[in-house]
Design a protein around this nucleic acid. Structure first.
Length: 884
RNA sequence: GGAGGAUUAGCUCAGCGGGAGAGCGCUUGCCUUACAAGCAAGAUGUCACAAGUUCAAUCCUUGUAUCCUCCACCA
């Protein structure tokens, strides 16, 4: 074979983009035709087309990529569906912000022009997102890419809407909804974020209409008083028993309102008297319905006070109006007092403005029945959360579910498929566009202006992307999907609703395993956000360290749904590992010059050969288990320690002796084994470090095809060599302890010492090659290394060390610092005596002997013997030292 | 008010009923026929606190403290 030259430095930029293009061109991401077994499919949580991907996306997609690559390599039919979400409010906001800079409003453009422009913005962002996913190395099938507003998905949305409507599960009505004046639209309850905000608690006099005095109410929002239609007290409140039914004169107006009773009033809170504003407070709204109160809306859609308020306040925003009302109340002597008061105020999750409860016509979906289906799916085990604790969150949400407000007063989105006939007033709900009234045949039909909540398309994602409502081949082959990977912040918005829709429309759970990842935070544990400026751009990470480094690092840190705290330096970890892989390969490929690959027969394997195969086998087993349980950090750990600690630090080092001084035959065998392990390692590591393993794989003399579709290594009993494993572990301990002794005794490396090793009986049978002995000998700096099989070698005057499976003796007499060594030994003795005391107390404990597992007792006895021996030996050693 | 999580080396975090771990950082020595982005050795821990269960607790139970997240309520 010819040597293969690798670039001196690991430089991912050289090959990452190129390899991605090659994979794409070869169609490696598409489901394989020769795949066998149960399908494995994932739908990518669609990123919003508003922005660029952040670290959270990087984590999420890295894990999905690892999973899908792993299953692809196991030979199962796999599909990873990518796509993007139109993100109604967010995207519309982006475009409106742009317009604002040009001094325009969306109304100036008109619906059609505005949408054209939004599509262009969508295209732009979509392209950026796609490029980012490609840079990360995501092996999703781009031929299956979908967008929540593309034709097929729009059809799915209509199908879902109409079908729910026909079942009576969609209704329209005037309701008090969360309304964002800035975005100009209603929001669902889940889209409101409550924040503790400093405010004032105003105590205000409301005089009796008959002039006989006044009562005092307490409020944080005096400006809403123009919408008051009653004042309520608790029916059991003795203080106000006599005033119930009396009329009050609403200050600053000439309206009269009654005093009523309602259970919801808390006697202890404030003055025990509450102003009731049905149009602007959810509790008051309910109360108003109970008492048939008049509902007075005092706000315009833009959040300013409307014509139902006295003229001087009209057109003011709530916060400004509040100040003015407060001043006026004070001027007129109604304001009793005001106190500082912090309370939770709802904010828009998109633009962060204060949410107003607002009375308007909206569409709703009845959720109770679907929630029951979704709960059953969990109970039956059709969906399983990893980690399990998120099931509580899911259950709680399902059990306390409220109807879902699905209409949004936006232009960007799926327009509600409902038409109204101007002639006969018929409401037409249709899967197809309507141009004529089916009843009166009038052409004067008009579609609803509002669009649907973005999540109304996202909740269909696992099947709409596969072609539903049609019975497609993809649905047949890949539905239900296997695993969903998502962060915990959208369990309500998205995950729960997908289970509901899938159960409702397909009577099946949309996926089996739900993997909940943590959030990516900065090193201080803060959420990454634009305003803090603490975000890390995945592309910047890739530029600096490479996509493999990013993916591996995230995987290594993604433990059990815990939040991931990182900064730019964190990625050095993955980068160093990729570099290590590169350099190990570079070295190995330099040394295949003139060698031949030969058949590797079991009988010709040495102790270290068997050991490395065994370690590889263990790693494959460990990774398989970890992947099955979505324990990504465990998998990454297994990969890392196998390749670096076992293969590089021990096996390659050991092989050098054989590689540089053996016979041609021996050299061929060693190279063959090295290449075999290297080739297998690339397959083992490919899901975690995809680019560097592919780049290397292509250069290996024994590679077949592309590693991306190569067979994933599996645990194989035949490669399990427990004896050799124990033996090499013992040797490693010998090396460590001799080195440690040398170090603590300050014996310089160039000072060669004789070392005698005795294995305990278990390993006496298997022999070490001369080269293996030579290797160990070099590591410990031995002038002579004696493997003392029958214990006949004299160890008189040597420093004894012992550990599991071995004893070793180092002849250190010449180079030793006696007093210090004695001190050290005395310390060891006292520690061993402590340990022995503990062990003895256990062994003399009747209960322990009675109840403990046999192995535990045996182990304890072993420990006792070990400690006793240690003490004896150390004492003997001290004696020895004293004689020197 | 309800639920959940966290508390382990200087930092970021794994582990989890029977002898305290990784990465980074730190100290020391090494350019050992790939890798100084490396190799080797080393130091640092009442595993938050208290009680209980157990033959045995960092791990299980209960309580306490501190921090975080979510949900609900808030005139």
């Amino acid at each position: 074979m010819k040597a293969v030259e690798l670039e001196k430095a690991y430089n991912p930029k050289e090959f990452e983009d190129r390899i991605y293009q090659e994979w794409k061109e070869k169609g490696e991401f598409a489901p394989r035709k020769d795949a066998k077994g149960e399908h494995f499919s994932i739908v990518m949580p669609p990123p919003n087309v508003t922005g660029i991907l952040h670290m959270g996306h990087a984590l999420n997609n890295s894990l999905q990529d690892i999973i899908i690559r792993y299953y692809r390599m196991t030979g199962r039919p796999t599909l990873w569906v990518p796509g993007t979400d139109h993100a109604g409010i967010a995207t519309q906001n982006v475009v409106e912000r742009e317009l604002k800079k040009e001094g325009l409003r969306r109304q100036d453009l008109g619906r059609e022009k505005f949408l054209e422009r939004t599509w262009r913005v969508k295209e732009k962002h979509h392209d950026i997102i796609k490029r980012q996913l490609e840079k990360m190395g995501c092996s999703c099938d781009w031929d299956h890419e979908r967008f929540t507003m593309d034709e097929g998905l729009s059809r799915a949305v209509r199908e879902a809407f109409v079908s729910l409507y026909e079942k009576g599960m969609i209704y329209k009505g005037k309701y008090l909804v969360n309304y964002c004046p800035k975005c100009g639209t209603a929001l669902s309850d889940d889209e409101v974020e409550y924040e503790n905000t400093p405010g004032k608690f105003y105590h205000v006099k409301y005089p009796y209409a008959d002039g006989s005095g006044y009562i005092i109410i307490a409020t944080t929002r005096p400006e809403t008083m123009f919408g008051d239609t009653a004042v309520a007290v608790n029916p059991d409140d003795e203080r106000y028993k006599d005033v119930v039914g009396k009329e009050l004169l609403l200050p600053l107006t000439d309206r009269r309102i009654p005093i009523i009773t309602d259970q919801f009033v808390d006697k202890e809170f404030g003055t025990g008297m509450v102003k009731i504003t049905p149009a602007h407070d959810p509790n008051d709204w309910e109360c108003g319905k109970r008492h048939n109160l008049e509902v007075i809306n005092i706000l315009n859609p833009d959040g300013t006070l409307n014509e139902n308020c006295p003229e001087k306040y009209r057109g003011l925003e709530a916060v400004e109006a509040r100040k003015l009302v407060r001043d006026d109340l004070e001027k007129e002597g109604y304001l009793v007092k005001e106190e500082a008061y912090n309370h939770d105020v709802g904010h828009c999750y998109r633009c962060h403005s204060i949410i107003e409860p607002y009375l308007s016509d909206q569409w709703f979906v009845r959720m109770k029945d679907m929630a029951r289906l979704a709960l059953d799916a969990l109970k039956k085990g059709d969906v399983v959360f990893y980690p399990k604790r998120w099931e509580n969150t899911y259950v709680h949400w399902m059990e306390t579910i409220k109807d879902w407000c699905i209409s949004r007063q936006l232009w960007w989105g799926h327009r509600i498929p409902v038409w109204h006939c101007a002639s006969c007033g018929k409401e037409i709900v249709s899967r197809e566009d309507v141009t004529e009234c089916p009843d009166c045949k009038s052409k004067d039909v008009k579609q609803e202006d509002d669009v649907l909540d973005t999540w109304f398309s996202s909740w269909l994602w696992p099947f709409s992307t596969l072609g539903w409502p049609d019975k497609t081949e993809d649905m047949e082959k890949f539905f239900p999907t296997s695993t969903l990977v998502s962060a915990y912040d959208i369990i309500f918005f998205w995950i729960s609703r997908m289970v509901m829709s899938s159960e409702e429309f397909l009577s099946k759970a949309p996926f089996k395993d739900i993997v909940i990842t943590g959030l990516v935070r900065d090193i201080q544990g803060r959420k990454m956000s634009k305003s803090l400026g603490n975000g890390i751009d995945p592309i910047a990470v890739i530029d600096q360290y490479g996509a493999d480094a990013m993916k591996f690092t995230l995987c290594y840190m993604a433990a059990q749904g815990q939040d991931v705290l990182i900064d730019m330096n964190s990625f050095k970890m993955g980068s160093r590992f990729a570099n290590k892989i590169w350099n190990a390969t570079r070295y190995l490929l330099q040394n295949i010059e003139g060698r031949n690959l030969v058949e590797i027969k079991e009988e010709s394997l040495s102790t270290f050969d068997k050991w490395i195969y065994s370690q590889f086998n263990d790693a494959a087993l460990e990774i398989g288990k970890a992947m099955k349980n979505y324990r990504f950090n465990d998998a990454a750990n297994a990969v890392y320690s196998f390749f670096w600690n076992d293969f590089c630090d021990w096996y390659i080092e050991e092989s050098k002796a054989r590689l540089f001084s053996g016979s041609d035959e021996e050299k061929d065998l060693v190279v063959s084994i090295l290449m075999d392990i290297l080739e297998k390692s690339m397959r083992l590591m490919h899901p975690f470090l995809s680019f560097v393993t592919e780049e290397i794989y292509q250069k290996l003399p024994n590679h077949k095809g592309d590693v991306i579709v190569a067979k994933y290594p599996e645990y194989d009993e035949k490669y399990s060599y427990p004896e050799e494993k124990k033996k090499v572990m013992a040797l490693q301990d010998v090396v460590k302890s001799v080195r440690a002794s040398r170090s603590s005794l300050q014996i310089p490396p160039e000072k060669k010492l004789k070392v005698v090793v005795r294995f305990t009986k278990d390993f006496a049978a298997s022999t070490l090659l001369e080269e293996e002995k030579k290797f160990i000998s070099t590591l410990v700096g031995a002038s002579e290394l004696v493997i003392d099989k029958d214990g006949k070698e004299s160890v008189e005057g040597a420093l004894p060390e012992s550990g599991t499976g071995y004893e070793c003796f180092t002849f250190v007499r010449d180079a030793i610092n006696v007093p210090e060594e004695i001190k050290k030994l005395e310390k060891e003795i006292s520690k061993a005596e402590d340990d022995l005391r503990k062990t003895n107390s256990k062994l003399s404990n009747e209960n322990f002997i009675k109840n403990a597992k046999k192995e535990a007792i045996e182990k304890e006895k072993g420990k006792k013997a070990e400690f006793e021996e240690k003490i004896l030996k150390s004492k003997a050693h001290i004696e020895l030292l004293k004689r020197i």
